[in-house]
Structure formats: structure tokens, C-alpha cells
């Protein structure tokens, strides 16, 4: 079973020591991804979703961060790989796109040169070959006037075009896995849907796996096969997109789905989950969602729920998962 997984994260824990306290950003996350699969990662700000997947590229500085557990890429553990080996993986096997396209492009370098950089680094191309390929890549991400745009500086492009350029950089060496860390959050709604459609199209063309991190259930729904819901550094529920939306097992997932504004109901006020995210400096004894959960019982506050498997390849960490529906 392990052979056909491209990415396998096993009991990952990340702790940041901050001023004498410890922040438990990720508390035992286990998740895996088959080649070409698209996984949606959902959760509020600070729930550990970005930290988890930054760890896949070892972008978290350690020390100071304390990282334990295991991460395997194509069956090979990366936890003990030296930095030099990681540099070969980054951008080549796995690449990442970030939230702010403005800040993630070098302001004093032309777009074309920035796309060419990873081609020269990983594929050993000459500048001329790399620039030719850069034009192809920009056409692939549907950048209008690609030939002229490779000579542009980032500030000459709009937000949407910059994100397209970022995607072109990430896809330059045809990675097998693309980690998209809230790539549409900084964009307005119309551009957001364009970018999502673009990522869908690119996935079909290249067959790469995608991890799409977002806090917006609606954005993820159309794009991914499977969803993992993060809460307080843990995965509280995992399953196929369709199942999760039709029949959420965890009260938190149900709450998130209720939060999506709907056009077909009368209600004027948007639903919110009461309370706020827990302080991650201490790990609660029981279920981490218990203080905000409408169904919480005494067991929830004292006993930590285990991940239990449900039919259809789903899993959920909730004492009442089976009974709530």
C-alpha cells in the first residue's frame, strides 16, 4: 500500500518555542496522497495547515522549531535528508505557490528570468533555452502576450497575472506535486475563479498531484477529490469531497459548511461557529473542539477522541461522529 502513495505524512508534530512557551502548531497529523490526486486542506488561520505542508519541503527552520514524525515522498523519508538533497527536490519534484503574488516575486528581476531560474537550476538549460520555455509556460498559464510579458517586471503586472506568473514558475520543471498555499486568497472573486479553473486545467494536462490549502470550503469544493479538515493542529475529518459536503461527520466540518453563504435560503445573517480558535500553547485533555462544540459532553472534555475509520475511506476524530447523523 505504501508504494502507490506519492506523499505520506505520519504523525507529524511541529512545536515552536516562543519566549519560554511552546506553541504546538501541528499535533500528530497523518495524511497521504496518491499520485495525481488532489487534496483540499481546510481550516481556520493558525490551525497548522500551512506549517504541515511547508514541512513537506522542509521550509520550517529547525531549530528553533521541533519537528517529529515522518514525511515520505515517493516512499523515501525526507526527515533526515541533507539540505543539498532537499534543494534538488524543491521545485523539481514538489513545488509551492504562495498567497501573496506581489511579495513572492523578486521586484528587480524580469518575470522571464525568474521563470528561467529554476529551469537553469534543475534542468541545466541555458538562459536562451530557459527563456523560450518560459514563454511556453506563460502561454500554458494563459498569460496574454506571453512573448512581451517575459520582459516585464512584477510591478507591471496585475495581481491575477502575477499569480499566473507564480504558477508558471512553480510548474517550470513539471513537478509531480504542487502545494498551493491559499493561492487565491489575495485575489478578487472573478480572478479567483479564473485561477481555480486554470489550476483545474493544468492538473488535467499534467496529471500532477495537488494539495490545495484554503480556508474557503466553496473554493475547494470544485477542485479536489478529497478533503482534510484541520482544527488546532490536527485533522478532525478526512474523506471524499462529495461525502464531506453531503454528510459531514465532525461538528466542526458541519459548522464550516453551514458558514458558506447560500443563495437558495432566506436567512440574512451568516452562520458563525461561536468562540474562537484555541490557544495552541497547551494541548487540551479532551477534544480540542469541545469548548466550541454544540454537542459536547463530559466525555468530550476529558477523553481525547481517536481517529476512527468510516465507510468510504473516511475518518473522523469525534466521540459522537456516528450518532450525530
Amino acid at each position: 500500500m505504501a508504494e502507490n502513495k506519492m506523499l505520506r505524512i505520519k504523525d507529524l508534530r511541529v512545536v515552536f518555542p516562543v519566549g519560554g512557551k511552546q506553541i504546538h502548531a501541528v499535533n500528530g497529523v497523518s495524511v497521504d496522497l496518491a499520485p495525481g490526486e488532489a487534496l483540499g486542506v481546510i481550516g481556520e488561520s493558525g490551525c497548522g495547515k500551512s506549517v504541515t505542508f511547508s514541512s513537506v519541503l522542509k521550509l520550517i527552520q529547525s531549530p528553533p522549531a521541533m519537528i517529529s514524525g515522518d514525511i515520505e515522498l515517493n516512499g523515501r523519508s525526507i526527515m533526515d535528508l541533507p539540505e543539498k538533497e532537499m534543494q534538488k527536490i524543491r521545485g523539481k519534484e514538489v513545488s509551492m505557490i504562495f498567497q501573496e503574488p506581489m511579495r513572492c516575486l523578486n521586484p528587480v528581476e524580469k518575470i522571464g528570468v525568474q521563470i528561467a531560474e529554476s529551469l537553469r537550476l534543475h534542468e541545466g538549460m541555458t538562459m536562451k533555452q530557459a527563456l523560450n520555455r518560459a514563454v511556453e509556460l506563460l502561454k500554458m498559464v494563459e498569460m496574454p502576450d506571453a512573448e512581451q510579458r517575459i520582459g516585464c517586471y512584477p510591478h507591471q503586472l496585475s495581481g491575477g497575472l502575477r499569480q499566473r506568473a507564480m504558477i508558471a514558475i512553480a510548474l517550470a520543471c513539471s513537478p509531480k506535486l504542487l502545494i498551493a498555499d491559499e493561492p487565491t486568497t489575495a485575489l478578487d472573486v472573478t480572478i479567483q475563479s479564473q485561477i481555480i479553473r486554470l489550476i483545474q486545467k493544468l492538473r488535467k494536462e499534467t496529471g500532477m498531484g495537488i494539495v490545495f490549502i484554503s480556508h474557503d470550503m466553496g473554493v475547494v469544493a470544485s477542485l479536489v477529490d478529497r478533503i482534510a479538515v484541520f482544527y488546532a493542529g490536527q485533522i478532525v475529518e478526512q474523506g471524499n469531497t462529495r461525502d464531506i459536503f453531503r454528510n459531514p461527520l465532525h461538528p466542526y466540518t458541519a459548522g464550516l459548511i453551514k458558514c458558506i453563504p447560500r443563495l437558495d435560503t432566506e436567512s440574512r445573517r451568516l452562520y458563525t461557529i461561536r468562540g474562537s480558535t484555541p490557544n495552541l500553547t497547551t494541548i487540551p485533555e479532551g477534544c480540542c473542539f469541545a469548548p466550541r462544540c454544540p454537542y459536547a459532553t463530559e466525555t468530550c472534555r476529558t477523553v481525547k477522541p481517536e481517529q476512527t475509520a468510516f465507510p468510504g475511506g473516511r475518518s473522523c476524530a469525534c466521540h459522537h461522529a456516528a450518532s450525530l447523523n
Binding site: K84, Q87, K88, M96, R103, C104, L105, N106, P107, S118
Partner: peptide, 22 residues
């Protein structure tokens, strides 16, 4: 601390390259 150095790391650039190019 700006995004593009992080992005460059995530694309596989080494420390020398990041200092000199970015």
C-alpha cells in the same frame, strides 16, 4: 523575510544563489 526569498527557497535555490540573485 520577504516572500520572494521564501519562494526562491521553495524552488530549490541554495543560500549562495539567494544572497547573490535575490
Amino acid at each position: 523575510e520577504r516572500g520572494f526569498t521564501k519562494a526562491a527557497v521553495s524552488m530549490g535555490s541554495g543560500p549562495m544563489r539567494i544572497v547573490l540573485r535575490h
